[in-house]
Amino acid sequence: MIGFGPISKLARSGVLGMNSRNLDFIAAYNPRRFYPLVDDKVITKKLAIEAGVTVPELYGVIRYGGEMNLLEKIAEKHRSFVVKPSNGSGGGGIMVFNGVAKTGLRRMNGQIMLWSDIRYHLNNMLSGMFSMGDGSDQVMVEERLVPHSAFSKLAFGGVPDVRVIVFRGIPVMAMLRLPTAESDGKANLHQGGIGAGIDLVTGITTRGVQHNDSVDVHPDFETPVRDFQVPSWPEILDLASRLGHHIGLGYVGVDIVICEHKGPTLLELNARPGIAIQTANLRGLRPLLLPIHKLPSVPEDVHQRIEIAHANWNGESLERFLAPGEEMRRH
């Protein structure tokens, strides 16, 4: 891509732009008919279980306003749980509760949310206010994941997660997303969460960004966000690779929470993962995606795929992973 000064500089750095992501990768590798598999989190959960991936336990699904008492029963039984719209996007509408009071449910920040407010919120979720597409939605009630203790000084008021971009079943790039006071406990970069780039081979964070600016320490704890070893890193890559391969989508974002009790657990899949991950890693996605795009086939074995992922991250040629008689694709 040849352009005038600044644009050609961007091209040389290998940045994947939104247009190219949409056309060259999403349109080319993600058949539209598979979208419901990731957009509907209930289906995603089933698929993940098929692929042998750990998922949060599903306590129940609320489909109509009349099923609201189901929530009360679940609250009695489990006390701690998450409520989310099944077709939600970008974390909209998600509510986390960790206790039951007479008047309502206790939220993570200790406040009691009144039953009437909860009912209103659920109704909004059911009418599709937080959902992709239009029309109604269903509400999932599932297990609340407890973040790994390694994150106690890195995540403020919420659950951190790891986003892995998986291309043709091969992990390509990853980042750790840390909630802050500013992001209201949400691990969302849009709202002021921190994104930390991760060395794909070692699982050690390389740098952090908040609002597109480089940050060295977590603003709420003053703990460094770089050189942090993400726990269970090999298992995370394994999970991402396995699921990405199984799901039928070539280009997918896998969001994983490292649970204190269950280890790496799938949070959700994203068929249109954002491109901000490049800033967190200070590395363009293009040079990482193209070699994999040129592979004529991808091995069925998850370990081989992770080997490819390591070699790819280190910038090594992927020639040695070709099966006998295979040649790299031209385009």
């Binding site: 891509m1 352009g3 600044p6 961007l10 732009g17 190219s20 800033t279």
Partner: peptide
């Protein structure tokens, strides 16, 4: 069109 958007230049200035 798979080229960059103008705003992406500002967004990824660091990388450039």
């Amino acid at each position: 069109y798979t080229g960059y958007k103008v705003t992406e230049y500002y967004r990824f200035k660091v990388l450039a």
